[in-house]
């Protein structure tokens, strides 16, 4: 079967791409998506370890991470819509003050 290390390496690559995206992107929605990618990279590690140690805990954590990501999406997109309505732009550089 596939060595565990392959999954870990894949996860590391995905996480790096996500982190790079958060730094490179200026658009709030794109940054949000990069964060989701990072969460997913971590999920992959959890599932790989769960399968490696034959223990369900890792998968339960993934489940909870998904729930957190879902609530993050609900609130985050609400905030993004509110920002867009006030500034007509999603550029995070323009939203540098915490005031609408």
């Amino acid at each position: 079967m596939i060595p565990l290390s392959w999954y870990l390496a894949l996860s590391a690559v995905l996480f790096t791409i996500g982190a790079a995206g958060v730094i490179i992107k200026r658009n709030a929605i794109s940054m949000f998506m990069c964060i989701e990618l990072m969460l997913n990279a971590v999920n992959l590690t959890f599932v790989a370890f769960s399968s490696h140690f034959n223990d369900v805990t890792g998968q339960l954590f993934v489940f909870i991470v998904m729930a957190v990501a879902a609530s993050e999406a609900a609130v985050g997109l609400g905030i993004i819509i509110a920002i867009f309505r006030n500034r007509e732009s999603l550029d995070v550089d323009e939203a540098s003050i915490l005031k609408l």
Partner: peptide
């Protein structure tokens, strides 16, 4: 990781 971590137990 690639060189020191063992394989997935596929039971």
């Amino acid at each position: 990781m690639l060189f020191f971590v063992g394989p997935v137990s596929s039971a």
